[in-house]
Design a binder for these strands. Sequence first.
DNA 1: CTTGACACAGAACAGGCGTTCGGTTATCAT
DNA 2: ATGATAACCGAACGCCTGTTCTGTGTCAAG
Lengths: 233, 233
Amino acid sequence: MMMMVRKSKGITDKHIKVLEFVNEYQNRFGRPPSIREIGEKVKISSTSVVNYYLEQLEKMGYLERDNRVSRGMRLTGKVNQIVQAGNMLRVPILGPIAAGEPLPELQPGVSYMTDSEAEAVDIARSLLPPKEKGDNLYALEVKGNSMIDAMINDGDIVVMKPATEARNGEMVAVWLPSDNEATLKYFFKEKDRYRLQPANPTLKPIYIKKTEPLEIKGKVVMVIRKMDKPLAA
Amino acid sequence: MMMMVRKSKGITDKHIKVLEFVNEYQNRFGRPPSIREIGEKVKISSTSVVNYYLEQLEKMGYLERDNRVSRGMRLTGKVNQIVQAGNMLRVPILGPIAAGEPLPELQPGVSYMTDSEAEAVDIARSLLPPKEKGDNLYALEVKGNSMIDAMINDGDIVVMKPATEARNGEMVAVWLPSDNEATLKYFFKEKDRYRLQPANPTLKPIYIKKTEPLEIKGKVVMVIRKMDKPLAA
DNA sequence: CTTGACACAGAACAGGCGTTCGGTTATCAT
DNA sequence: ATGATAACCGAACGCCTGTTCTGTGTCAAG
């Protein structure tokens, strides 16, 4: 015989609604909402029920509460704590990029609840172009030295915006089916060919005829190089 | 005859105390403090006086307030708003780094109130080594293509930690008085010389005898490349 | 000395807010 | 059916909190 099974053992839609609103409100106002503000937004007419949910969320570890303090709650790392200030953007690292490996693709429908912690980078909104909403940015970690002509090292993190087309002069991640290779280059459209220009001005560009296949996977928005550990050698 | 001179026309110590506490509290708890909490910390016994200061700070543009909302305040960009969540670090950009130009120096005693907005970059603490407190980090903007052998482009921003010595394998900013040149290289101490290794493995290192002068100005902690605008060419 | 701006204290009020409690409805295994 | 459990409501209590008002002492200008 089964042990007592809770109707919804884990997190329910309502819990998520609450968490999302707390996060939203925090982003917008820099402070947590009051219980009544939550209730209004989540369509719960009684403060006691909101409290009821908050207690559960606290037990589940999604938030911490300070008793008897107005707005005394904060989202924990289990959610998306870091995004709290709204000045930050959590960009997921989808995987590696290396010559000879296909590029990881952005899956639609990844909820903001998916937070594999280590597999994301946090970026200040102020570092992005102001117009960039940053909704669907993603990041790739460069493996190997094949991107060296893009002035990008092994271990660098490139922040990308999904795109299938590019304007002249933008740096793009492209997949060259003919060579079975992924690379980062400045993109230029010329008369009857594409010019893929390495960032290192001492290197020669690659030319691709417009009849040949070329898949633009995204535009490079930013490159981050962490110098955590010393170079061995 | 002088016009009415306010005893302290601008910001006073008390104002700064308030701002600092609000910032501290926000960092610590993810929410602004209440008026009474401020009063307690800033040694003001009356809530009305705290309110009095908050009104002034609002007029001066250091914070915004939401009327009749508990903890309804937030620091504006004029202060260090971005640092709100405590997950971010505002690193000042001290100036350019270029071959042939001396390196900007870190002045001690720069209060956190100095905030020339555009002249700083915001970095997620999670991107730094966990041990790094980040108290006295600074940033330099790379000018020209002279750092290309460090895999660093014109326009890149290098985040530095002050240092006069380095361990093997760390990337450092050095000033070579003999050549009158600033450069970024991986640092290695060998028998009777220093080896300055470019990041680009295809390039040859520079050797400096230990008798020759060599000033280490700092260690490179991170490199940020913003791809705001397309490459012209 | 008077005036007025300024920095502060203290008290009181009203609404915000978290908490608690008694009670109702819905769901589901037995 | 039924009884247990979870999901909810409404109201009330009392502290928390922002707001406002009156008053006091200081200091410099006239």
